[in-house]
Structures are given as structure tokens and as C-alpha cells.
Write a protein that binds this DNA or RNA. Structure first.
Lengths: 344, 344
DNA sequence: TGCGGGCGAGAGAGCGCTCTCGGCGCCCCG
DNA sequence: CGGGGCGCCGAGAGCGCTCTCTCGCCCGCA
């Protein structure tokens, strides 16, 4: 099988009885090739099992046909739950017929982060996708300054990004709280996410939006999206406002933590306190009772990120640099009556 | 920032007042460089912010310093749950200081599968990691025949692989069933996985091992690892053997499906029927009751895959081509008494 | 003082591709 | 029948690196 070395463009040219240039044109789909020549070249390629050498091509074109998905992993939560898998799958689908390869870069430490920053700015990839950025990370700015197109997954705090895809966190939170209001709840608390992350801010804003619309307010505590912080938050809320009748948690794990505390206290869910989470992670369907949660279109987000990046790499005009995709509420028994869980 | 073009080796050589060869030697850690020259080169590299061009290097060395993680995605389940994330994270960690980059290849269709096979055999990567292979997929054989080192995650059916990392599925299943036996259960059924996958076969073997050791047998049905198939399997088991007192499901989702059926029938878990799953996925902690399950060391498996592949790429002798990592049971309330859930 | 050995450095070739350019034929129009 | 274009093609250069080979220098030994 491995006949010494792989066939080169030269070998294909020789076999097809044409010059290298012609073979190159055929491969790159140039129209300036006669049908006969094209035919001969294609046959030769097929017979030899020729596959172009990417390195050689990259060397001269200064394009690598590779984009990196950069995940900063100091934050454990990223990898948990469907978030990561869903996004990746969308990205992969969005890249599928573009000829671009996906390089997965996971920076597990601070130095690795720095090392990869160097790597990414050093002509090794045509573009970068960033997810789960820490607040104020200068990486996207550095990349853009070095001419590397970058698309963010999730809005960064403060700065307006060149291009970014996010779920409608604010709208989703609003929906969640409106849902609770619609069920007759009036003392609605929230366990918010970290306020140094835009996603935490947005979900809290949505909560306030919905309450303000009907002239309500409610107690607010903050967690870090983890189950433990949900427990702590719930304890604090119960201490502060024993009469609350609903809790909106800015993440599913926090909602799970909150539910645990409520159950331990003998508080019935949803009769006494309704609970809503955010993310519609796989655990939401399996808690007791099943957790009402806000669903994000992860795969679509990934696909959209890929689409934006490809457009930018190709130098096309970007219509909207920031894309916000709709979220929707999945109502389950943790907020609905004791009965069947509905969906959508 | 982007001053026209990135500095080349030539530029570094000029600035350091040496020849290209010397710079190359410094970069590649050759000992045949005088301290002064090395010093000068390093300073020049630093001042210019030089980053070697991988494509140029790959062209001449015929190594790409890239390995691919190939995931065949016809099988939905791969991406779900922690399996994928855990493995990836281990692989990434195992690759971290090898200088190798990780290319993520997700084949979502049959043609993509074929296309990537061509790509991977075509000198674009130094090695390939394969997870979740379909029974009898010829890909690993083709890769090895083309001189591409390949490491499998999970044993393939039939053939003996060159190198492969797997969890001790058989031992884990045995532990699970022994656990049930130890709790006094005697009519232990199983919902097995698909028998065209080695993992399904192994878990079923482990089940039989444990029962045979105490002279028991039990009813067996088969599912496809999905929740629905777990429901179907449970219904069939109940019809066949109404008096059973324990079920070992070969996957967590199947266990969840089984528990749902039992609850609907008003069967108490674990008093009347104990349930054990496999994978210790995140849902296991959140079901009602929490699910006893067999834990696999996903991150260690990923790291081991990376280690094996790197060794093979470097041409080192492989001690054990097939690595089986231990699993352990995490006992929770679905098998233990009604009380607290233990661990480990 | 002369010479050989060894170590460090530089020049040159070439990896496989793309891209530019000049040329060769052919067609069309004058 | 001749000339100008146009369509297609091949030759050549060169992308940035590694690697080999040769050369020069310094040191030690006779």
C-alpha cells in the first residue's frame, strides 16, 4: 500500500500527460481548463489515489484551511453538560463542506493560554472560535489586531466584539419569569449567575425585565452557576424571604441545588415553590420533579459561529456582526402542576 | 502589529548575525550550538516575536505534529453525556506538552466518513485516535496499512487491534452484579447493550460471570443503550419474570428508562427492585432515587490514548498494546436501602 | 612548529505546491 | 489571406523550513 511515498502533483501531471499548472487548476476548480485535460487529470488523480499535500499548499497560499476552537478551561463548567458537545457539533456541521479543518485547543492553565495565544497569532490558523471567555480576556483583541478573524460564542463583558453569537439570555430569563408570573406566582426570587460574566448579567436583567413589567420586585442572590452555590443561594433566600413562591435559577445546576434545599426543608415543588432553571441540560429531564428550564439552540449557535467565521475568512461583508439566537422555555413539573410535564 | 509579514527564520538569522542553520538548530534543541550563538538567536527570536511556520516545517519533515480525533457520529449517543467530554479532556491533557495539535474530525454521514478516511491516510496527520467505532469498521486497518499509527478508544469487535484503550467493562459489570448479590438479590435481570458492539458483549459477560460464580442465571433482554430501549426492555422483563428483584442495565439511560417503567408500575426502587446502571453519567446523581452506576475513568482513558499514540508516533516500543483501565461502582440509593447514598 | 581531529557554523538543495507569465495555437474579423 | 485577440497550457520561481555536506577554526599532541 505505502508505495514508498505518496504521489505528488508532478506524478499526476506526468500520468495525465499535462503540466503541473493544469493539475493545480483542476484541483482548485479553475475554469481555465479544457474538458479533455480536466478529464485526464481527474482520471490520473483517481488512479494514483492522489491527495494534495496541505503543508505545501499552505506554505505558498499562506492559508492553512484550519480554524481553531479555543476553549479556556479554567472554568470547569464548560465541559460539563451539553453546552460544549452541542456547540461543537454545530460548529462541525457548519464547517463540514467548507474544506476547513477544526483544531481543538483546550488551555488548561494560564501558561497554556499564553502559549496558544502565540500559536494562534502565528499564521497557523485562518480563524479562531472562542467559547466561554473569561471576563475581560484580551485574547480576542490580540487576535484581531494580528489579523486573525475571531468569532466569540457568548458576549464578552464590556467591549463590543467584532463578531459574536449568543443565545438570547435576557429574553430567555424574561420568558422564564413571565411563565412564573403567568402561573400566579408573585414572590419570585432569583439565584443569579456571576456578574462578571455577561451571561450572568443578561439573565438577571431578563428577570428584572419581567418583574418590572408587572410592577414587582424580588430578592436576588448570586451564585457561580454550580450546584453548591445554588444550595447556598437557596438557603439565603429562604432566610431572607420565607414566603417566596418561586425561584428562577440562572443555571440548571443551581436549580438542582435549590431544589435539594427545598426538598430537605419539606417544601413542596411546585405547589409551594416553583423552580425554573436555565440551559435545559440533560439533568433537567431527570430531576424530581423534572425541571422547567430555558433551552438554548446550541447546535444552531455552533453552526452560526462557523458561518460567521467562514464569511469573515473569505472576506465577505458581514450583515450582522452580533447574532442573538432565540431561546425557548421547556415547561416541566417543577413549575407546572403536579401532573404531566408539557414541552415547549 | 502585522508588519507586512511575519518574520522568517532568515530574518532571525540576520538579526542574530548567524546562518539559518544555526537558528534551526537552536529551535530544534540541537546540542551542537555554542552558548553565545544560542543566546543571540534566542534574543533575536524574542525581539522579533518569531514563531516557526509549521507548514514549511511539515513540508520538509513530513510530520505535521498533528493528530486527529475521529468521531463517527452516526451514533448519536457518543456526544451525549460526559463520555465525550471526559475523553477529550484527557486526550488534550495527554497531548499538552508534546507539541502535538489535536484535530477534531466528526463524520456526520457516510460520505464524510469516506472523505475523511482519504484525508487521514493522506499524510495530513501523524496519528489518529478513534472513538466509538462501529462494529467491523475497516478504518483502523486502512489507517495502519497506510502507516498511520492508530489508537482505539474501546475494543473493536472481532479483530485484535494494534493498540487500544478501554475500560474494564466486563469487570465493572461483574462488580455491579456482585453488589446486587451482596445485597441479597437473587433474581437479577439485565438489559444488555447491542451485541454487535464489544462494550455490549463485555458488560453482558460480566453479568454472567457474577451470576455463574454463585450458581445463578437470570433473564436477559437487549437494548441499544437508549432510554426508550430501556423502557422496552424493562417491560419485557416484567412480563417474562414478574418476580425479579434487581436489574442491571448496561447503560445509564437504559437504567433511567427502566426506572421510569418500574415507577409507573408502582414498583418501589430499591425495596422491590434494585437498579444499577453503567457509565456514572451526570444524570445518575439526579434521578429519583439516585442511580447506582459503574464509573469509568474517562479522563485517564483519554490520557492513556494520547500516551500510547505519542509513543507509537515516536517509534517507541509499546509495552502493552491494549490497556484496560479499572472501573468502580458508585453505590447510590437505587440499590442501597432507602437511606443515604454512599459513594465508591 | 606542524598536523590531525573535532566541533560549530553556513551554503545549498529541495520538500510539494501555487501563481505569474510568456507562448502557442485557433478563431474571427477585416 | 493576414493580424489581433483569446483561451489554454507549461516553465520557472519561490513559499519557509530542515538537513546534509563542507569548510574553517581551535586545540592538543608529537
Amino acid at each position: 500500500m505505502t508505495s514508498g511515498r505518496r504521489p505528488t502533483l508532478e506524478a499526476v501531471a506526468a500520468r495525465a500527460g499535462v503540466g503541473r499548472g493544469t493539475v493545480s487548476r483542476v484541483i482548485n476548480g479553475s475554469p481555465k481548463v479544457s474538458p479533455e485535460a480536466r478529464e485526464a487529470v481527474l482520471r490520473a488523480i483517481d488512479e494514483l489515489g492522489y491527495v494534495p499535500n496541505r503543508a505545501a499548499r499552505a506554505l505558498v497560499t499562506r492559508r492553512t484551511d484550519t480554524v481553531a476552537l479555543f476553549v479556556s478551561e479554567s472554568e470547569e463548567r464548560v465541559f460539563g453538560e451539553p453546552y460544549f458537545a452541542g456547540i461543537i457539533r454545530g460548529i462541525s456541521a457548519g464547517l463540514a463542506d467548507t474544506g476547513l479543518q477544526l483544531l481543538l485547543v483546550i488551555a488548561q492553565s494560564e501558561e497554556e493560554h499564553a502559549r496558544f495565544e502565540r500559536y494562534l497569532t502565528g499564521q497557523h490558523v485562518d480563524g479562531v472560535l472562542l467559547i466561554s471567555l473569561h471576563g475581560g480576556d484580551p485574547l480576542p483583541r490580540h487576535l484581531e489586531e494580528n489579523g486573525v478573524p475571531t468569532v466569540l460564542g457568548g458576549k464578552p463583558v464590556g467591549v463590543v466584539p467584532v463578531s459574536c453569537v449568543d443565545a438570547d439570555n435576557r429574553g430567555g430569563a424574561r420568558q422564564a419569569v413571565e411563565h412564573l408570573i403567568g402561573l400566579g406566582r408573585r414572590r419570585i426570587a432569583t439565584i443569579g449567575g456571576p456578574q462578571d460574566m455577561q451571561v450572568g448579567v443578561d439573565r438577571l436583567d431578563g428577570y428584572h425585565d419581567a418583574l418590572a413589567a408587572v410592577g414587582l420586585t424580588g430578592p436576588v442572590v448570586h451564585g457561580d452557576f454550580s450546584e453548591e452555590s445554588g444550595e447556598r443561594g437557596m438557603l439565603e433566600l429562604l432566610a431572607r424571604e420565607p414566603a417566596l413562591d418561586a425561584v428562577f435559577a440562572a443555571s440548571d445546576p443551581m436549580a438542582v441545588g435549590a431544589m435539594r434545599v427545598l426538598k430537605e426543608r419539606g417544601v413542596h415543588i411546585p405547589r409551594e415553590v416553583a423552580v425554573v432553571g436555565f440551559d435545559d441540560s440533560s439533568i433537567a429531564r431527570h430531576t424530581d420533579p423534572p425541571l422547567t428550564s430555558v433551552h438554548q439552540p446550541l447546535e444552531a449557535m455552533g453552526r452560526e459561529m462557523a458561518r460567521l467565521l467562514v464569511a469573515r475568512i473569505r472576506g465577505e461583508e458581514i450583515d450582522r456582526p452580533v447574532v442573538i439566537l432565540d431561546t425557548h422555555l421547556v415547561a416541566r413539573a417543577s413549575s407546572l402542576g403536579n401532573g404531566r410535564s408539557g414541552a415547549h
